[in-house]
């Protein structure tokens, strides 16, 4: 038995549990209905990939972290409350293998929940939009399926980052009740708290118009939004440049992603 075997044992149990959880089917249906409903209301699918992304961006910024927190807020708090973490400490299973296995399993669930409806929406655009959207553009100013694939990839990454934030809060909670309260507070901070803090800084003079882009890129939602503008929306609009630096946004998202997972492992290990 290697430590990697322990990781896979935990991962397989998470996936098995997810397959048996009917609530995830409900979550998938609600998310799909919301995304298709918003896209249809905005008329995006008929207009092309970029108009669809424009319709979806704000909704996705809120819905994706919400689904990620729903999937992950009890991931560590539940086994802690059951006493399972104490029992597992007597096994040759390092905490990184446990946290990693649970995270990988729930990531598979989350990627399915978020990826399936967005991919289906992409297929709808392909079948309903004008013929110019079928061009696989390699230059600015043209709508393209590749832009939608970029949006999908960035959104899935944003989902994984939100899940890692949910994990660290779950590890800190230690009980189901506190896990729910921390998850709701965390969700509020991720979806609107970052922007509110930046604009409060702007109002108070801590953030200037020169540093606004960098400050927005420091928050997960701001960095994600900045990258979607940089890599998807402005690619199709000649002469526009992104409001945040792509490199800073990627660095920020990596920091939140890796930092949250490392923090989850440390909190779980020192319980």
């Amino acid at each position: 038995m290697t430590r990697a075997d322990g990781f896979w044992t935990v991962f397989v149990r998470e996936v098995r549990a997810a397959i048996r959880t009917r609530a995830y089917l409900g979550l998938l249906a609600v998310l799909a209905a919301a995304l298709f409903g918003v896209a249809r209301a905005g008329g995006g699918p008929a207009g092309g990939y970029v108009p669809t992304v424009v319709d979806l961006l704000v909704v996705v910024e809120v819905l994706v972290p919400t689904v990620a927190f729903a999937v992950g807020y009890r991931a560590i708090a539940d086994p802690a409350a059951r006493g399972e973490l104490d029992v597992l400490e007597t096994y040759p299973l390092p905490s990184w293998a446990y946290v990693g296995g649970v995270y990988a399993g729930r990531s598979a669930v989350l990627l399915t929940l978020v990826g399936l409806p967005l991919a289906a929406l992409g297929v709808q655009v392909a079948t309903t939009a004008g013929p110019e959207t079928t061009v696989f553009a390699s230059h600015r100013g043209v709508d393209s399926p590749l832009l939608y694939v970029r949006f999908l990839a960035l959104t899935l990454w944003y989902a994984l980052i939100a899940l890692s934030l949910a994990f660290v809060l779950s590890a800190l909670a230690g009980s189901r009740g506190r896990a729910l309260v921390l998850a709701l507070a965390g969700l509020l901070v991720v979806t609107v708290g970052g922007d509110v803090a930046v604009f409060a800084g702007l109002d108070g003079g801590l953030v200037t118009s020169e540093t606004l882009g960098g400050a927005l890129a420091m928050t997960p939602a701001g960095a994600y939004r900045g990258l979607v503008f940089d890599q998807v929306l402005y690619v199709a609009v000649p002469g526009r440049s992104a409001f945040v630096s792509g490199a800073v946004a990627v660095g920020s998202l990596l920091f939140w992603w890796v930092g949250s997972l490392v923090a989850t492992e440390l909190v779980t290990d020192t319980r």
Binding site: R13, R16, A17, R20, T21, D78, P79, R82, G83, E84, D86, V87
Partner: peptide
């Protein structure tokens, strides 16, 4: 442990 509890659904 004093009150062993196992993950439901299995």
């Amino acid at each position: 442990p004093q009150r062993p509890t196992f993950r439901p659904g299995f």
